[in-house]
Design a binder for these strands. Sequence first.
DNA 1: TGGAAATACGTGAACGTTCACGTGCTGCAT
DNA 2: ATGCAGCACGTGAACGTTCACGTATTTCCA
Lengths: 335, 335
Amino acid sequence: MTSSYSGPQVRRATILDVAAAAGVSRQTVTRAMNDMPGISASTRERVQQLAAELGYSPSRFAKGLVQGARTSLGLAIPDLTNPYFPAFASSVVEEATQRGWNVVVDDFGHGSGSGLDAVARLGPQVDALVGYLGASSSEAQSMMGRRPVVVLDYPSGQSAGLISFDYAYAAQLALERLKSARCRRIAYLDADLEGPATTRGLAVAAAAAGAGIQLTVGQSADSAHAAREAVRSLLADEGGIDGLLVFNDLMAAGALKALRDAGRRVPEDCAVIGMDGIPLGELVTPELTTLSLDLRAVGRAAVDLVDNLMSGRIQAGSRDSELVLKHQLVLRQSA
Amino acid sequence: MTSSYSGPQVRRATILDVAAAAGVSRQTVTRAMNDMPGISASTRERVQQLAAELGYSPSRFAKGLVQGARTSLGLAIPDLTNPYFPAFASSVVEEATQRGWNVVVDDFGHGSGSGLDAVARLGPQVDALVGYLGASSSEAQSMMGRRPVVVLDYPSGQSAGLISFDYAYAAQLALERLKSARCRRIAYLDADLEGPATTRGLAVAAAAAGAGIQLTVGQSADSAHAAREAVRSLLADEGGIDGLLVFNDLMAAGALKALRDAGRRVPEDCAVIGMDGIPLGELVTPELTTLSLDLRAVGRAAVDLVDNLMSGRIQAGSRDSELVLKHQLVLRQSA
DNA sequence: TGGAAATACGTGAACGTTCACGTGCTGCAT
DNA sequence: ATGCAGCACGTGAACGTTCACGTATTTCCA
């Protein structure tokens, strides 16, 4: 058996170690480390030097305990690999950084975790939570106690702050566009997720019914690859489709691939509209017409809401704690 | 002037508040909250109930102080919006979560921040750092003191742990492929970044010289849009290019657009090879041949290295603290 | 009915900082 | 000589937990 050397778990140097080494008191070390006045230049330098040699870095816990918390924001994301989320996360991080907060992320897509697992992990570490939680928002809120929770893209708000999207409006925009492009046989490809998918699906179905459109509905996992397969078999079953609305842009990219595989020209043979407006849409061929969302604005709104909830300017569960954002139709080549 | 109500900055409830409300001691509250033995079921329930009512959640600082740190890992990312990084970040988060660590991210792309700003922000909050820092790794290490630092894609390791890539090998693979595709006039589009770009550029130039290839070099910012413009003007200046190697896949996607704009067929008129192997490459048309990197493996390697540095199994600055990964040529349609 | 063991709780100390003071010393004007 | 200001530094207390004990009260068997 080779040595199971467990390494230098030696006890980190504390402020007292530095003080002893320098022959001064705690407070003088504090003054040196934090560039406070009331200390001579020579002492300051000597202490800093010694601190570096001992590998001293102040305990964030002790500091936090005595100074009061620097806010830390939990960010629960289903899957950072899905290009929708980085755009959003990036904006949250930027906005939080501007406020001097820091952001603890949890990606619960891998492994069998649900959103609530992420909340459980983040809970003890953070002062507030923002997340795309497929799970019930009130569950999350109860795990966080009085601390602010903002849930995105969830059907109906309970006790938590909520940012949702006006899918009825979005669906109407998309269907109008497809109709004016003379599409007759329209399909909607939904994702097989819990919350958002059904919401979007219902909104699209309702809008179609309202507009007298007979809608074919398909479903796939939330990935380009899965969408490609789903559209492939959709085309096999329902040959005559000439308009396709897709759950999101990533899946729409897969749909474009499937249409190309089947020899259908886009938009001539079949128009395609995606959803959410991620940068990817401009890089595929043909470029994707989409119901665009300003994802940076979504992130900003989420952090703003947290800020307002934390400061008490907005009451959790009140009308003001729910925000509905609208998509915007961006015309490119695919429809 | 309307009320500038500053909200309930009231002082968070502490364990003593709960104890008082329940008529028990601190310790009993601790037992109730942490599901420890030595407490009756009825008391436990009553305390938990009261805690919820008072909105009590234990201070992570006090807890951390007395229990010893739960490891938290800083992750410094230049730009989450660039699809290279989420794939990496996602893997780091997953790997860290498995170890029970949590991850604090900082995206320093927005604003004028350099990597060192991110290190300064993260430094006080974390026990170790992983990052794509354009800045000098030894600067970062000195800001972190004895705490582990792992820098990615940086030319030469100093005091910090280092994960870099064998660009000589990668360049050779790419140029061989282009040569065997009968490309005569080959260009390399570099990014205008500090560290990595020059490294890659030098490697490509060296490999070209070694293979007797005369190389045209262009440069652009690290985005699809900028690359599109750069390739547009490259084609205007140097009409005869029939092979193009690009700094990364995102820029390669822009290059594909520019070639299409100019009426060049890919790969017939001009072959294109990207770098890093992000999922986007499979979604563009034609699908992108690329020097692929297993980004999840990169994240795994980074967290492993941090783990080893932290436990002392590997000494910072030693040979073992440097790891060189190799790209792999993935043939798709564009070359 | 004695006494040991189990149960349910309480108390001092410690974690590592910073804050709000307090103290000694030097220099300088009166 | 006296007083007073300013500088450089030190000390008790506090932040909110948990840990390692200690202590009543009850239980249960011989």
